[in-house]
Amino acid sequence: MSLTLFNVLAAVIIIVIFVALNAAYLVWCERRGAGRIQRRPGPNINGPFGLLQPPLDGLKLMAKQLLIPGGADKALFITAPVLAMFPSVMSFFTIPFSDILVAHNINIGLICVLAFASLGTMSLFFAGWSSHNKYSMMAAIRAISQSVAYEIPMLITVITVVMISGSLDLREIVRQQSGNIFHWNIFPLFGNSHNLLMPFSFLIFFICSLAETNRAPFDLGEAESELVAGYHIEYGSMGFGLFFMGEYANIVVGACLGALLFLGGWACPFGLFPGVWWFIIKIYLLIATVIWIRWTFPRTTIYSLLNLSWKVLIPLSLFNLLFTAGLLKVF
């Protein structure tokens, strides 16, 4: 066994650095993208193209004092931001970037990612509750009801993909989509899916991942640009920074899952580069779409948000599940 302490530590450090860098620079991408969409420059002063902005922001946040409001539950107040970052870091230990580039492949990798993603809800709860503030409490109730509502159609849609590929191993799911661009799960009729509704399942999955990561048009939990920041209203300094980075890290995890399940992972549409680069291109295309959607669509209200999940997405995804099962039985 070539597994040494050095290997383990190197893997952990690489994953943490990957997540942190992604989170920091996605903030920059988001602000630049927002600037472009709103016809203003965005952060462009510090360094070339404003590339030094994220580390400087980080330094500023770390230099600030960590205020704990009176009457707050100290232990939980400090734990909550850590819990916000923790699930996405844990998810990366089983997300494969190519056939060989994976920290630890287990044959239930998909469940592993979803299980850790479900831990994120608790950080909202602890943050909202321990702040000892009515506003953060109400925002936490809203954010949790949102993330619980959208977890259900997301899991049901994932089950349809699992039924088609017959495996929970992320590498195996990608392997079945390789060979030809039309073998990707998002394309109907070709490949192994033979399912007319696959583009539609991808749409459900994408909407749910937007809602799960609290992104606009579903960012009622925080609404950082207009309202008080929601469940993390009492957090300053790096506590706030961790919540902010956790959100972007979750977007990366969501984009990875979308690319692996529906867009063929590291399967190349046409040669050119090795698979890893294709996977990374697919992730960042999905993330760019997420940013684009955020600055193009207005925010929904809480009622239409919950109605969309319970009255539209859940029945549709259940129908999708039954339809897929029927097709698999027939063909």
Binding site: S118, M122, I144
Partner: peptide
């Protein structure tokens, strides 16, 4: 983790809130 932390603990959290 998925059932107990993701579902049952969240239900308890709802009940508390």
């Amino acid at each position: 983790i998925l059932i107990y932390v993701g579902a049952i603990a969240v239900t308890i959290a709802f009940a508390i809130m």
